[in-house]
Design a protein around this nucleic acid. Structure first.
Lengths: 193, 193
DNA sequence: TAGATTGTTAATCGATTAACAATC
DNA sequence: TAGATTGTTAATCGATTAACAATC
């Protein structure tokens, strides 16, 4: 959240910001912000506040944005194609290296300049090239098995869009993007209004 | 989280579950679970535990899943099309009512059996039919303005996929789905491993 | 030097956990 | 009746807020 907001400020040409100003924009207390930032280091300066660009860069470093990461996309259905065409990965230093699907009609097609590979090529590809993150956009019926396999083959983390628990050891990094959960929060917000 | 897990249990035919068993599956304490559930009502029974189907239904009611909701999709690019084709809305009692785009080449095309309407039809559509939720899958350069408009016209909540703060009054329900944020959490998890 | 604002400690608050009586 | 497990109170813990000395 800090990273995103500071990026916007930097784009807008803002040079410095105080914890009080940040607190108004982000709807939290200035104390909270100073505590948070201080857990990672003294990024501010008494009497001045924080330099926007420097703070943005520091938080980026903490989050690992300064390290390039490779991304492969598994499943080239609607969602997989949307993920493949998503233009902003570069902003977080990610690069899409390959896209895979089982469907023979999709294999060989071009999506945003990349030819979709068959699932039978996945094992060899991962073993040869590795992959920092695999976006899993496949039906939930096959997600668990694919997840287990790609982890064994060398994928380091999974960005999971299948609405199911992947059952991997809990130290293995998984980010679940469960769209229905967020839609359900809206249905809750709409109650009794 | 409870709703999702209990749904899986129900599908698997599990009839009853105790807070202790739930706590093992969900990686939290049994105390926590009993506290959480009791805040909404006494759904369990001493000596027995919780009836899976009943608890699932109760949580559904709390979340508003028992009320049907309408959904419109604004922006029929890759992401909008993926959202339009997403099959599982019914599970949360949502129905996709219409899809809109500005691009003349896309307008009139069929996506999963629905004809894409032009953005110039949006105002009339919303004023006439209303919409509980609008999924906003448009470039961030136009997102803020569209958001302001559709709220004025009668959309009750926004499911926002544009990576920008929509600047709506904070009592208006907005769920931001910021994919790069979750990808960035993975980049953080991958640090120093 | 005076004003501003951080870094940091202490106080407060709320959330989590533990414990156990109630009861199925 | 005995065993199991909830509902709920009390104890603990951690996170947030307030306050202020340090310092730019």
């Amino acid at each position: 959240m800090y990273y995103r907001y500071l990026g916007n400020l930097a784009d807008a040409g803002v040079e410095r910001i105080s914890s009080r100003e940040l607190s108004e924009a982000l709807q939290m207390t200035a104390s909270q912000i100073r505590q948070d930032l201080n857990n990672f280091g003294g990024f501010g300066q008494q009497g001045y506040g924080y330099n926007v660009e420097k703070l943005h860069a520091e938080i980026g470093k903490i989050m690992g944005v300064d390290t390039p990461h490779s991304l492969i996309i598994i499943g080239a259905g609607h969602l997989g194609q949307a993920l493949a065409g998503y233009a902003s990965y570069g902003k977080r230093n990610f690069t899409v290296e390959a896209i895979f699907d089982v469907n023979p009609e999709i294999i060989g097609q071009e999506i945003d300049g990349r030819v979709v590979k068959g699932m039978d090529e996945l094992e060899a590809f991962v073993k040869e090239n590795g992959a920092d993150v695999a976006a899993l956009a496949v039906p939930k019926s096959v997600a668990v098995e694919i997840a287990r396999n790609i982890r064994d083959w060398g994928v380091r983390a999974i960005w999971n869009f299948a609405p199911i628990d992947l059952e991997l050891p809990k130290e293995f990094p998984v980010e679940n993007v469960w769209l229905l959960d967020s839609l359900m929060r809206l249905s809750y917000d709409l109650k009794d209004r």
